[in-house]
Design a binder for these strands. Structure first.
Lengths: 123, 123
DNA sequence: GAATTAACTCTACAAATGTAGAATAAAAAA
DNA sequence: TTTTTTATTCTACATTTGTAGAGTTAATTC
């Protein structure tokens, strides 16, 4: 089950906050904020989809993500790769490098990261 | 305007074929193939969204993409980056490198690509 | 303790999406 | 030329998504 756009947006706030009460989530939204009921609906749907849960503190609920941002995202990217690059990550990497507008500094940084990763894998 | 899942799938076939008649598109689908009318509906919606158009050959239409796969994809990735990595491509790159399961060989390849890109930018 | 605020559930509704039947028209095959 | 196949438009309908009002209850403030 996938998150919809609006749910994803809310999820982003929850990931940032790590755990949050309704009011924290509402605060996170920029003007014009959605109605409380809207957020409540989204939260319930996200619960049904098993993306969030909450802890009861007396009567109030503290919501928290059930899915790590990294995992969610990783699934996304891997989906993209599978979908558009016939499952070839390196083809994607190539595309990514030339097509996104990374600055030279960022590219250097990326090179460093890649290098580290290579070293890590050689151990 | 965004393509929906089903539309994206169809678009993928169109990109692969480059241009195609209805029957080519239907052929592209695996079993169980959708009804012709389903594909027709999707094509029309995609036309409304300005993703495809067609050339008339007598009475039959040869459909073709109005949007390059690369462009579509690039928008996607950039959206992801903006959405999840506060607009930091390098943060995304870092994630990508460690989180997707690139083999050492692929990583080496990526390094090469990055290097070329750096050189290209220095000119 | 009465008034206000916050959060939740229920219900609703419009728009978008996935899917396809019915009807029609044109083209191809027999 | 009659039959069959193909493509198209129109219409339809169930599901999902975005959004929120009404009503209820608990918590907070005056």
């Amino acid at each position: 089950m996938q998150l919809s756009k609006a749910e994803e947006q809310l999820m982003k706030y929850l990931w940032k906050l790590d755990k949050a009460f309704m009011k924290d989530l509402l605060e996170a939204y920029p003007e014009p904020k959605p109605a409380t009921t809207t957020v409540a609906t989204l939260l319930k749907r996200m619960q049904d989809k098993n993306f969030v849960d909450y802890t009861l503190y007396g009567k109030s609920r503290e919501y928290y993500p059930l899915v790590k941002k990294t995992d969610y995202f990783s699934k996304h990217v891997n989906g993209l790769i599978k979908n558009f690059f016939n499952d070839s990550a390196s083809q994607f990497a190539s595309f990514f490098t030339s097509e996104t507008n990374l600055s030279t500094t960022e590219l250097e940084e990326l090179k460093k990261i890649v290098d580290q990763q290579i070293k890590k894998q050689q151990q």
